[in-house]
Design a protein around this nucleic acid. Structure first.
Lengths: 404, 404
DNA sequence: TCCTTTTGTTTGTAGATCCAACAAAACTGT
DNA sequence: ACAGTTTTGTTGGATCTACAAACAAAAGGA
């Protein structure tokens, strides 16, 4: 007899324990090194409870005591830090022209960061999946050599990804309905850690939410461009996924009905007027294929040289991007909209006009410092975000087994 | 010593209890009448635990046993239902031309539904607040006569409302920075139940989420028009508020750059091309002031008579509205976008073109039945949503005191 | 009349937090 | 040098809650 009740889930002692373990873990992550007394005072948990929680986390090798102590009056505190050694979280980003894999420990320290050339478009999905799995296996091997237990692997793809890890549409890769998660699970031999697939922009905003200058801000939006334009949104402290997992599709929002033609058949989509691919097409005259980075570097060079045509194109793209950002700002009201991906090197020329457009189009009163900023995390944001997603899951209660 | 830690909140036994009380309450609400055994079987809670929880809820007069029993083999069950008598939740919507107050019991049964003419524009905010308070007092008096305890009062306003209940901007009322919540609390004599203020569209989508045909769907968007156009979004089962509480501002999204002028100074805002106010201006030729309902009724009459100009205008408004809805669909990916407010009577002529526009503009694969629908809740949605907000708070743990 | 079935309570157990008291380990002052 | 102060972290007991299993209650069926 299957129950069809889908309302709120009942709670239980293990939930209380899991919640409080996560609270302690989160506190140590953001305030390390700290003492048990600090944790108790700041979180409101009882000292005895904190001792018990810290004890369990040490036993599970998530935390570690250091010999460090502060020179103060009173009994010296035994300081607690995250235990960097035993675990690793892996994020892997599938770009059109390269694969990026990043592994971090609990504290966010990079354990490895590899890039590999990759021909996303042109190869069959099967070959691409094999290449992705091969890179993942290499990273897994390295981490196994270090004696680390893998907490999870999250793969980012620029496209529509459903909750089962099937890539519905990824124009940059020419993929349709590719069951990436299942394929990877099979290729990696049905590992015991969770393997998930998500949209790259979703992962990038998770990276910002955990490691960026606005870390912990409950409402963030992230706007990025590979070949297309896509948004990731954190609202109320959680990733906004939507009913099918397809939230954040801003690329085909029409900002300029008379503008250039878009790959979707319409005219003046945000992607077509302010996407990095479109910028390259307009400024370099070449069809953007393969690695976009040198092309972007070329644009930066010409902008630095004050080339009028380049500056004008960037300013106009900025205006349109500000228009797109205003949509996010008005609909979701984030504390800040972060520009990422290839926009970051172009930010000095894009941001002024984009910020101006945003300010005139946003309805709500904006606190000072709100608005539009460039990401400080660099190109690996999506891969880092994949690792962040794994750590989010761990902190949400999926703790690794004790001494497993 | 103020703690500055803002991470996840520690849990406690009382949280477990509150959660499980809410689970039982929610189950009975959606499955009444039901027995203790039903609850245990469906929620997974232990029979003994359910007995304890139901006992407490009966003691607090939120549930009630009925004599009813089912004729089956085995010991007959004592059926449980929501206790309709002791409590009331009040929602009050402030329109430009009328006030609506609704009171419901725990089960959503309407206890009263009053409308009153109201001159929002023109009167000073002080006078308007006095009128709102007067209507609330009348409703409170009626409920007190019935011996009901008030669980809360939520007031909806069409405009930007910050988390403290200050109405930052409400163009329909000509308000700026009106501290409505504080004023009401004072006018009602600092009552012991919570008084809150929220955006009308936010409340309307809460009403849909609780009482509409899509009740319980975790991702919903609501698009409504008074004089302006505004959206309310439920994402991941929770209302999307944003950093400042200003989410859902879709009215000044530019859908037609060459279109008619908008009150905001730009051209072709969604509000200016598809707002009900703009429709009236175009079709009736009159400046929409005061009650919009008869004007809308006039448009419906002319549409029924197949008047070409009216039909064309509605179809065009529908196209633009579909464009606006596509933004919501692409950015937030709700299961469905619900058209509310004055759009409901116009839906037969708006929906076809709007749905068509939406379908061509939405990027994500849509499951059948998704898309655009007209609200089934009627004009009182925002007021009902105010009451729903109160009940949400109760079910989130703010249970009334036992025998208070 | 006895058995079966289902309901709801009772009784005891386990787990987790909290409180208060205490022990431990430093610094401080005479 | 030594007691007093201050802060840390642990220990034992009380409390609260959910759970499991046995049991009592109330019907229908044979």
């Amino acid at each position: 007899m299957t129950t069809t009740y889908t309302g709120p889930a009942p709670a239980d002692f293990t939930d209380v324990r899991a919640t409080n373990l996560a609270v302690v873990l989160d506190y140590v992550r953001t305030n390390a090194p700290c003492s048990r007394a600090d944790i108790a005072a700041s979180t409101g948990l009882n000292k005895a409870t904190v001792s018990s929680l810290v004890g369990e986390l040490i036993e599970r090798r998530l935390l570690r005591e250091t010999g460090m102590t502060e020179r103060r009056i009173g009994r010296p505190a035994t300081m607690i830090v995250l235990d960097g050694a035993p675990y690793a979280a892996i994020g892997l980003d599938v770009g059109t022209d390269q694969l990026t894999v990043i592994a971090v420990d609990l504290g966010g320290e990079h354990l490895l960061a590899w890039r590999r050339a990759f021909t996303g478009r042109g190869a069959t999905p099967g070959r691409s999946v094999a290449a992705i799995a091969a890179l993942a296996r290499r990273a897994l091997g390295r981490l196994a050599d270090q004696g680390r237990q893998v907490l999870g692997l999250t793969v980012g793809v620029g496209g529509l990804v459903d909750p089962d890890g099937v890539v519905r549409i990824a124009t940059g890769l020419d993929w349709r309905d590719v069951p990436l998660r299942d394929s990877l699970v099979r290729a990696l031999g049905a590992p015991d850690y969770p393997v998930t697939v998500d949209n790259s922009a979703n992962l990038a905003v998770l990276a910002e939410h955990r490691y960026g200058p606005y870390a912990g801000t409950p409402d963030l939006a992230y706007l990025t461009s590979g070949p297309g334009v896509s948004a990731g949104i954190v609202a109320g402290g959680r990733l906004l996924r939507g009913a099918g997992g397809y939230a954040g599709e801003i690329g085909h929002f029409v900002v300029d009905p008379g503008g250039p033609e878009c790959s979707c058949g319409r005219r003046g989509c945000l992607e077509a007027v302010a996407g990095v691919g479109a910028l390259i097409r307009r400024l370099a005259g070449t069809e953007p294929a393969g690695d976009l980075e040198p092309e972007v570097a070329g644009i930066v060079r010409r902008a630095r040289a004050q080339e009028p045509k380049t500056l004008a194109a960037l300013h106009e793209a900025g205006r349109h991007l500000g228009h797109g950002a205003s949509l996010l700002a008005n609909l979701v009201n984030p504390s800040v909209v972060i520009l990422g991906g290839h926009y970051v090197p172009l930010a000095p020329w894009i941001l002024p006009t984009a910020g101006e457009a945003l300010d005139t189009l946003v309805v709500a009163p904006q606190p000072p410092g709100a608005g539009l900023v460039a990401s400080a995390l660099g190109h690996d944001a999506a891969a880092v975000g994949g690792a962040a997603a794994v750590l989010d899951a761990v902190e949400a209660g999926r703790l690794p087994l004790p001494t497993a």
